[in-house]
Design a protein around this nucleic acid. Sequence first.
RNA 1: UCCCCGAUAGCUCAAUGGUAGAGCAUUCGGCUGUUAACCGAAGGGUUGUAGGUUCGAGUCCUACUCGGGGAGCCA
Length: 432
Amino acid sequence: MTTIASVQHLSRFVDQDVRLRGWIYHKSSKGKLHFVQLRDGTGIAQCVLFQKDVPEALFEAVGRAGQESSLELVGRVKADARAPGGYEISVNDGVVHQAVDGYPISPKEHGPDFLLSQRHLWLRSKRPWATLRVRDAVITALRQFFDSRDFLLVDSPVFTPSACEGTSNLFEVEYFERKAYLTQSGQLYAEAAAMAFGNVYCFGPTFRAEKSKTRRHLTEFWMLEPEMAYATLDDVLDLAEDMLCHVVQEVLRRRRPELEILERDTAKLEAIQKPFPRMTYDQAAEILKNHPDSTFRYGDDFGAPDETILSNMHDRPVMITRYPKDVKAFYMKRDPEDPTKALCVDVLAPEGVGEIIGGSQREDDLDALLTRIKEHELPQEFFEWFLDLRRYGTVPHGGFGLGLERTVAWICGLEHVREASPWPRLMYRIEP
RNA sequence: UCCCCGAUAGCUCAAUGGUAGAGCAUUCGGCUGUUAACCGAAGGGUUGUAGGUUCGAGUCCUACUCGGGGAGCCA
């Protein structure tokens, strides 16, 4: 039996006979020879079948086999500059498992509606392949980063009894005799875990029933939320900065070919180095006040065009701190130097991508948090356990939430976050 | 929820209110170096749905359905 090789590691088998198992990505025939671009999941390799070198039945079978036909080909690996990837298989044997005709996704252009409806097949194409391999590297780098810093993974529940930040925009589900909601953030549970384990993070799916139809929104997305006991806003900023640098470095180290397929300008990723620019809301407001394209009014949150203006001013993520308390969540601690502000941060990715991280130092004072819950008209009974964290050994603490798909979209240079998810869930799309 | 845009062959798109078209894909034939090959031939249509205007509607009008982009909100 000939050695089974993967396209990824083809260079290890030069001048050896190997067996490749996969699918036809593309084929072109010239009379007495076929060129088969064989896709095996790890990459694409060019295989050449000369009629005189292979069994007649195989030559005819390959001739009839269209795009995405499944097959195994056996042959010698040769370095050949004419072949994409630099290696080529001179085929002498093989078998077509299933000859396909009429595969829906041709090498030509397609629209997003069609491609999303064919997501189960679209995954096989080059761009999704490259994108999802970058996503894998991002996730691996994130876990590695937190593990190396002794953060413990403590996941938060998906079913929750009520809202973390407010009652709107939640998906409601039947939960036996009562209602439950799909989580929109694991943060409150991460805070409890931080009091038990010190530094923790949770990483899982979150859900927003917001009727958003933009390139930045999914109804289901993955969020990574670290939480640190005995931490201040500055600690949160430092952590976010180190984390993003590590993730980008790891993607550059491990996923160069994928970034090339995506035609990503890697110079823009090389520029992601410490320190990131940091400014306060007031400083950002001053910039927007004088900007012709902004309709910003002091006291409001920044709109999407405002974020674009601010992020385009820098070649690396910009960290904006200390927003007005009224536009931010109830659990954020107020700035002791200016009680109208919250000790919070938004991290805006460059190139107009916008917000990928939102974080804060948390309110650790029981009475202040009680007041805040009343101000926001939240049902206190659902937050008693959360208030317990302030009753029994409260400490300064903080953390942030990182949107995975937005981060992947930024690193890959995607137009829309839906491509950063293998099975994107959008307001008007839940299939396949 | 609001604003803008779109829907014609499997896909991407054309068609001045007057005969429904092309490229790709598919099928068949040809070709020993293709990279989204090339050359020749064939099949493929209830123009999103329902009404209306008109001698005549893919084209104009109304409603609906589905989708795309954006706002707000957020990661």
